[in-house]
């Protein structure tokens, strides 16, 4: 029977605590969980039949639930769903072979939480409002539009120019929010990954890794951002195990 790996964790402080915790949990398809260990690191696994390895909501939630529960007690590296090896021996070899890289990653995420922040807007409404504000302070642009002689071609060019200008204004606005966010995060010495304009509505998609004790400060800051930018919708999720901050491909 194959072995499904949920996470690799550090058990340097209390290996017995892990065994006790695993006895109280169940893995996918109700399977028992157990640890395969090498020195101070352990892989948490369960037996699985390959046909049971179904990527549906229920299994994904069960899988994430095991990782989440473990993360409350241990520093860990979450594995991607579907990480399967054929035997305990193979897992043991994998731990030995990748030991230092695993330890480096465990140190990087120790005592830290991951949070996700998505910022949404109504793009048409926001672009229109920003454009109006911009035009109010930039009469030159308004004049140049109105002075152009009317023709189908000029109307088309004007429309395109206006659209381009609106997009520029929106991008500049998003950049200014990101700059402010980045400045705040740098004060917390936070690892971050920020993507902008992942869709028309999702203008910022970011993940942070920060010290556990800084959690409340982050929440307060996002509340402040929400108050400052009422036209945007800030959605903070977490704390998550450090899914986005494990930089390792194990063999």
């Amino acid at each position: 029977m194959d072995k499904m790996i949920y996470s690799i964790l550090s058990v340097k402080k209390d290996p017995e605590k892990l065994d006790t915790l695993l006895r109280s949990l169940k893995g996918i398809a109700g399977a028992d969980l157990y640890a395969v260990s090498s020195d101070q690191i352990s892989a948490v696994v369960s037996d699985i039949n390959r046909p049971d390895l179904i990527a549906n909501n229920s299994n994904a939630i069960d899988y994430a639930g095991v990782i989440e529960t473990l993360a409350r007690k241990f520093t860990l590296l979450p594995m991607r769903f579907g990480s399967v090896m054929d035997s305990i021996g193979s897992i043991n070899n994998m731990l030995v072979k990748n030991y230092s890289e695993i330890q480096n990653n465990l140190q990087k995420v120790e005592n830290k939480y991951e949070f996700g922040l998505k910022v949404f807007c109504d793009p048409e409404k926001l672009m229109s409002e920003l454009s109006l504000e911009s035009e109010a302070t930039n009469e030159t642009l308004q004049t140049s539009y109105s002075e152009m002689k009317t023709s189908v071609y000029r109307e088309y060019v004007n429309e395109k120019l206006k659209e381009h200008k609106k997009e520029e204004i929106l991008l500049s606005y998003v950049d200014s929010v990101i700059a402010e966010l980045t400045e705040f995060l740098s004060q917390l010495n936070t690892l971050k990954k920020i993507k902008k304009m992942t869709s028309a509505k999702n203008i910022i998609d970011a993940v942070f890794l920060l010290k556990k004790e800084d959690k409340n400060e982050l929440i307060q800051a996002v509340e402040d951002f929400q108050s400052k930018y009422p036209r945007l919708n800030f959605i903070l999720t977490g704390p998550w195990p450090p899914y986005n901050f494990v930089d390792i491909t194990i063999k």
Binding site: L53, W240, N244, I248
Partner: peptide
């Protein structure tokens, strides 16, 4: 759930090799 699925299926430690997944 979307955030969770994104993390569980897209992120985390990658184990090289092949595996079998079935969907529903």
């Amino acid at each position: 759930i979307l955030e969770l699925l994104d993390r569980v299926l897209n992120k985390g430690v990658i184990l090289t090799g092949d595996l079998v997944i079935s969907v529903a």
